[in-house]
């Protein structure tokens, strides 16, 4: 058990060290969401309500995209370079490896969420009626979801060209259906049903619950729980794609 924890944290430190050697990626992950939220605020200069409506869901979408991309490419590199195969010949277990990744990317998503929501809720003046810590909690849940989906994508891609195409393939349909453009209740019944089965819908619902006047903490926690359940599900599926024996 102790060895298991040691190996997971060693892996998390290794992943974070790799990111430290790549400050541009980390910088982009933090700065791009800040710029986009600022841009949104400027677009809606005279429509504060609209900014509240659109700005909050974006806070949940950034960690999904960022963590999806870094996970899918990091895992694809491990598969292609042979480091994954080598790790699987050592005492490191598959679940310890993934726990290490989850710790590292969870921390990264936390940093991103804290900085971006500090800017958005502070100087940009996004009005959140629920507890603002929950914005960060939801962002971490979404980040873990992004990791699970990225892990799955890396298993079905043979190259970095392919793996980045999985981002629009998996995230954009969810973006269209999550209620950001049209409220989910006003969609055709079939699409509403599909949106009910997609994790992003609950992330965005959660953010809407945080900004709406009739804020209900219970509903937000429910949304967070559903996003976490999807995250765990995708991580379990993703873990099954990390095979010790390959041809």
């Amino acid at each position: 058990m102790k060895g298991s924890v040691t190996r997971s944290f060693a892996t998390a430190r290794r992943v974070l060290r790799q990111l430290r050697h790549d400050p541009r990626t980390v910088g982009l992950m933090i700065i791009v969401p800040c710029v986009l939220e600022t841009l949104l605020r400027l677009i809606y200069t005279h429509r504060r309500q609209a900014f509240d409506q659109a700005g909050a869901p974006l806070l949940a979408i950034f960690p999904l995209m960022s963590v999806f991309l870094v996970t899918s490419i990091a895992l694809l590199r491990e598969r292609i370079s042979g480091t994954l195969e080598r790790l699987l010949t050592t005492p490191l277990g598959r679940h310890e490896l993934l726990a290490g990744y989850a710790i590292a990317f969870g921390l990264l998503a936390t940093a991103q969420a804290v900085i971006v929501s500090a800017l958005t809720l502070g100087p940009l003046g996004l009005r959140v009626r629920g507890p603002s810590e929950l914005v960060v909690v939801l962002a971490i849940a979404v980040a873990l979801l992004g990791m699970g989906l990225g892990l799955l994508a890396s298993a079905f891609a043979r190259s970095e060209f392919q793996v980045v195409q999985f981002l629009p393939a998996t995230v954009l349909p969810q973006l269209l259906l999550c209620g950001l453009l049209v409220a989910r209740q006003r969609m055709p019944a079939a699409l509403y049903g599909i949106s009910d089965a997609l994790p992003m819908s609950y992330a965005v619902d959660g953010m809407h619950h945080l900004t709406s006047k009739v804020s209900a903490d219970g509903a937000i926690l429910g949304d967070i729980a559903i996003v976490l359940a999807f995250a765990v599900g995708s991580l379990v599926l993703g873990a099954a794609t990390v095979k010790r024996r390959t041809s």
């Binding site: 290794r14 060290r17 790799q18 050697h21 790549d22 370079s81 042979g82 480091t83 195969e85 080598r86 010949t89 050592t90």
Partner: peptide
């Protein structure tokens, strides 16, 4: 007990 070195270098290039 095992030490394994594959034909590809299998190391982290960014470390």
């Amino acid at each position: 007990w095992l030490g394994y070195m594959a034909q590809s270098s299998s190391v982290y290039e960014d470390l």
